[in-house]
Design a protein around this nucleic acid. Structure first.
Lengths: 196, 196
DNA sequence: TCCTTAAGCTACAGTGATGTAGCTTATTAA
DNA sequence: TTAATAAGCTACATCACTGTAGCTTAAGGA
């Protein structure tokens, strides 16, 4: 016998969005290993049965939540400011990394179990084709504009900025623009033959 | 009433070492979020009560296990081979990263909860003073030998190699010597003004 | 307005981890 | 040989999460 209960009741996408937000928050705070149907339901203030009616497991739910999250923004190289555009593209990356979706992705990628279904889903549904290529887009744009040899944009060079941002996030927290500027000047630009 | 049981019974450091190994294996396989006294006890084939007699929680146990693990090796720059020594120092880092202790550390650092006690313990008891400075040691050695300006070895530059290795481990697995060589040539050496 | 749908609520049995207690027994040192 | 110590074993109450069932009820469309 149901007794009191909320007089206003969410349905459809209203409810689903709340559940998605709860799932991302749970995994970002607790990690994949502590993600439970119960925890998601409680945070979303809904009944556990409502979750089981739609998803068989926390992983499946999480994957849908990530697909529905805002995608990564693409960097849009401007007129003639390689250094500035590189910093801006790293700033985009940082913004995404500290968003609920970004933190959820980190929890998934960092989990030792590396659920293959989850990781594959990530690549197919979140990174899409264009994902994770923040500085690469900018570098290729300026190389094609004739600023330097396109052949210098190797996979390693395209990864330098992202790699240093990841390391900064791990052991020093969120980098400010000065920190991003140092990464660009001291690591990325030298790799394409530009010394300050 | 105890019935059969193992006729040979481990004591002292024999037992403790087995427990440490079990703890590192558990956290490496399952992640910090799934680390339990029960799991460690079962893997070490000992009684849960034996764990509670020594440690109050899985975290405390894990920290002791990490302290007891083999420390990171220091790179020892050789005669006159900057490139080779850099690759060797990154190889040291990779070897450590894929060891039980290294994988446990990754699980701890990657955990969204970032248990402050655990992280602080890591810095004090595992990284010590010298930890995490694989390429830095080599770079400073050659800079002081006059190969390039020591001022070029900034925190960012000292991090380039480690950062790219971390990224490689995350999204492409264990790097071989060719991959390490590309990191050295295309990212580290240009940053200190050396072009192949 | 009525009716279908979807959500909420409660309950339940099952499972696995917790932390403790009290006992038995192997190992080691005296 | 004996005694002290440390480890093993079992049991227990408790808690949190699971997955399911069956019911009640709010929302929204016909």
């Amino acid at each position: 016998m149901a007794v009191s209960g909320n007089p206003s009741r969410r349905r459809g996408s209203d409810l689903v969005d709340a559940i998605y937000a709860a799932a991302l928050a749970e995994v970002a705070e607790l990690g994949l290993g502590r993600l439970t149907m119960d925890g998601i339901a409680k945070r979303a203030e809904t009944a556990r049965t409502s979750l089981y009616r739609r998803w068989p497991s926390p992983s499946e739910l999480l994957l849908d939540a990530l697909s529905a999250a805002h995608p990564m923004e693409e960097p849009t190289p401007g007129a003639d400011d390689l250094r500035g555009d590189l910093v801006a593209s790293l700033r985009l990356m940082v913004d995404w990394a500290i968003s609920p979706a970004g933190r959820a992705v980190q929890a998934i990628m960092g989990d030792p179990r590396r659920d293959p279904v989850l990781v594959q889903g990530l690549y197919e549904r979140v990174f899409a084709e264009n994902g994770g290529t923040f500085t690469r887009t900018v570098l290729l744009h300026y190389a094609r504009a004739g600023e330097f040899d396109e052949a210098l944009v190797t996979p390693v060079v395209a990864d330098i900025g992202e790699a240093l941002v990841i390391k900064h996030l791990i052991d020093a927290g969120i980098p400010d623009d000065d920190a991003l500027g140092r990464i660009v000047e001291q690591a990325i630009l030298p790799a394409i033959g530009i010394r300050p």
